[in-house]
Simulated assay, not measured.
Amino acid sequence: MTLEDALTALKTHEKPGHAEGAAAYHKVPRSYLGVPNPEINELATEWRRTLTLQQRLTLADDLWQTDIHEARIAAAKLLTQARIRPSDEPVWHLLCSWIADFDSWAIADHVSKAGERRIMADLSRLDHVEYWTESPHMWTRRSALVMTLGLTRLNHPNAEEAAARERVLGWAARYVDDPQWFIQKAIASWLRDLSKHDPERVRAFLDKHGEDMRGFARKEAGKNL
């Protein structure tokens, strides 16, 4: 499948007025086709089923480089998969190469879902992710938390997973005085999700760092406690 084929397929699902609404909502100057997410998901699912891994990698990067909103979301969905054979290294490297381009939460979150699966498949990748925590690019710093959300959902983490969870909580602790709304929201979401599985650890975090968090973030983090 070529890039032109993929864009043509996306455009067949355009909804009148949807592009204008998306542009107004996301407030990022780029092209919007007006294709709802369910239709993008259906197309990406079919492409994942029929294309080889190398074909998916090529198409995903071609879609990403268009800077079209729906094309970038489709690119992320093409690479969102729990197990990738024979090696997921090319997928991980491609996802990481896109992070510097992040400028909106919707696209960033779709890529982060793909990245989360690659991190959970190989926790040694946290060594690379840790560099993101020092980035001047807010969306890169945010990705260190959003891409590691899989660690919050473990009911019975093994020793490696528990250590990884504590490592990310250490990053969150360093973020608490970051004034950026999206960073505060990412901290809150990480803690809120973790509280469903380890409420005592979240209470301990909030006891120590809660006063340094923005009010809305502290409230969201403790929502389930």
Results as ranks from 00 to 15, higher is better:
L3A: 11
D5A: 03
A6S: 14
L7C: 07
T12V: 06
E14W: 02
K15L: 15
A19G: 08
A23R: 15
L33R: 06
P36Y: 06
E39T: 10
I40D: 07
T45A: 12
T45G: 11
E46P: 03
W47I: 00
R48S: 06
R56G: 15
Q65P: 04
D67T: 07
H69N: 12
A71M: 10
A71F: 10
R72A: 03
A75I: 01
K77L: 15
E89R: 11
P90D: 04
H93F: 03
I99T: 08
A100Y: 03
D101G: 02
A106I: 06
H110Y: 15
K113A: 14
E116L: 04
I119L: 12
A121V: 05
D127H: 08
V129R: 08
E130T: 14
W132M: 08
T140L: 11
L145Y: 02
L149E: 01
L154D: 02
H156C: 05
P157E: 02
P157M: 00
N158K: 00
A162F: 03
A164M: 03
R165K: 09
R165D: 02
R167Y: 00
V168T: 01
Y175D: 05
I183A: 06
A188W: 05
W190A: 01
R192Y: 12
K196R: 15
P199C: 10
E200L: 10
E200N: 12
L206G: 12
D207F: 08
H209T: 02
D212S: 13
M213S: 04
R214G: 13
R218M: 06
K223M: 06
K223D: 06
